[in-house]
């Protein structure tokens, strides 16, 4: 491990991701769960950037770029489905 402060920040961000996962489990309606998943996506992107800086790997940050764009497409697809199809 090269930079321990980035690693500990990634651990705290993953604790926040676990709290967002509680909203996915206990959400009373479907859009509540989708909000939980959206928050989880952004926190995982932040955690990947932190781990890429901690372990000095560029490939983790490239994966974070791809994950950010694909999670956006996934959120838009679920929102399109929730509002009643392709209108």
């Amino acid at each position: 491990m090269i930079a321990p402060e980035f690693f500990y920040a990634a651990v705290i961000v993953m604790i926040g991701a676990f709290l967002a996962l509680l909203r996915v489990f206990f959400g009373p309606s479907v859009p509540d769960r989708v909000v939980g998943v959206d928050t989880l996506n952004t926190l995982i992107v932040a955690g990947m950037v932190l781990l890429g800086a901690a372990y000095d790997r560029t490939i983790y940050i490239d994966i974070a770029i791809v994950y950010a764009l694909l999670s956006y497409v996934g959120t838009l697809t679920i929102a399109k489905y929730l509002q009643g199809g392709l209108r």
Binding site: V30, P31, V34, V35, D38, Y72, T75, L76, I78, A79, K80, L82, Q83, G84
Partner: peptide
């Protein structure tokens, strides 16, 4: 923000 806007609009429409 675009994803959040689409999500709020979908929640209100549902």
């Amino acid at each position: 923000p675009v994803g959040a806007h689409a999500l709020g609009r979908a929640a209100r429409k549902s």
